[in-house]
Simulated scan of single mutants.
Amino acid sequence: MRTAAQNAELALLIEVAGTPKPGNVDRERDLPGLRFEHFLAGAVGAQGGLRAAERGERVGAAFERAVEGMADQRGGNTQFGALLLSMPLVRTAGEGELTPEAAAGTVAATTVEDAVDFYRAFDHVDVRAGDPPEEMEPLDVRRGSDAAEAIRTRGLTLADLMERSADRDGIAREWTDGFEQTFEAADRIAALDGPLPARAAETFLWLLAHEPDTHVAKKHGESTARSVMVRAQEAREGGPDHVRAFADSLVESGINPGTTADVTAGALFVALERDGLEV
């Protein structure tokens, strides 16, 4: 029987193995400087932090440890968002039943030191972030551990930080609304038939067709994110050839729906852990 940490690692591996996964690395497509093997190494490297979360260590400390291990490969940031989404879920599963209510309780229990650890994670890897308003510069995530004093002075918990970002970041939104999309996508994965990587790829496209990807919105603008959402639904309706053409077009345009991939990974973990899906 797999542990929660092992299910989380397996979820990361299955997520990247799903194909086609428009705009993202999968087992049949690499991107410049970012290859399938980097994601495999990132998932394995994160295991120490996942185990720490399962045995009850603070969410922020476990996350920072997982990111440090994930970054021990040449591709850079492979699963930062997926680990941020999954960490409170793994911690919850390690303590008992994995439900939205229990996961929300884990989020609510985060502390200022968890927030400091979250910032420390940015010391290990480059993550896309826009320029904050002038009054928020002391809390710019790109400062990494240098922002610790500002976080402690303001008394911000990790839950507070996620709430501040929820209107523009899909992972933060999951933290603040009880992981609604994650559990809904997990239900879909559990209900589908066939190999789990194929279920993951189908669920990725379903998610992309239902809500604008916030990573795309940050990089390319809200209108592009909404256009990608519409095109994803058209591809789903058109069938496999349309999906493959859609995937090619996103890569050619440099559009990477990374948040959707992160939610898919979190949903896979929930489906494996809560529903006991067999592999």
Rank of each mutant, 00 (worst) to 15 (best):
A5I: 12
A5Q: 07
Q6L: 12
A8C: 06
L13M: 13
I14S: 10
D26A: 00
D26G: 04
R29Q: 10
L31H: 00
L31R: 04
G33R: 06
L34V: 03
F36D: 02
F36H: 09
L40E: 04
V44T: 00
V44M: 12
G45V: 00
G48N: 09
G49I: 01
R51S: 13
V59S: 03
F63A: 03
A66F: 02
A66V: 05
V67C: 03
E68W: 14
G69Y: 01
M70Y: 04
D72L: 11
N77E: 09
Q79D: 10
G81W: 05
L84Y: 04
S86M: 15
M87I: 10
P88Y: 07
V90R: 06
T92D: 07
A93C: 01
G94K: 08
P100S: 00
E101C: 09
A109F: 08
T111L: 10
V112F: 08
E113C: 06
E113D: 14
E113W: 02
D114W: 02
D114N: 10
D117R: 13
A121F: 02
D123C: 07
D126N: 02
R128T: 15
G130T: 10
D131E: 15
M136W: 12
V141R: 10
R143N: 08
G144M: 02
S145L: 09
T153G: 04
R154I: 06
D160Q: 04
S165Y: 00
A166S: 13
D167C: 00
R168F: 15
A172F: 10
R173W: 13
R173D: 13
R173H: 11
W175E: 05
T176H: 14
T182Y: 04
F183W: 00
F183P: 06
E184L: 14
R188D: 08
A190T: 14
A191D: 11
L196F: 01
T203L: 10
T203K: 05
L207N: 08
T214A: 05
K219I: 12
G221S: 07
T224P: 03
R226P: 14
E234M: 13
R244N: 11
A245M: 08
F246R: 05
F246S: 10
S249F: 08
S253D: 15
P257N: 13
G258Q: 07
T259G: 13
A261L: 12
V263L: 15
G266A: 10
L268Y: 01
A271T: 05
D275R: 11
V279H: 10
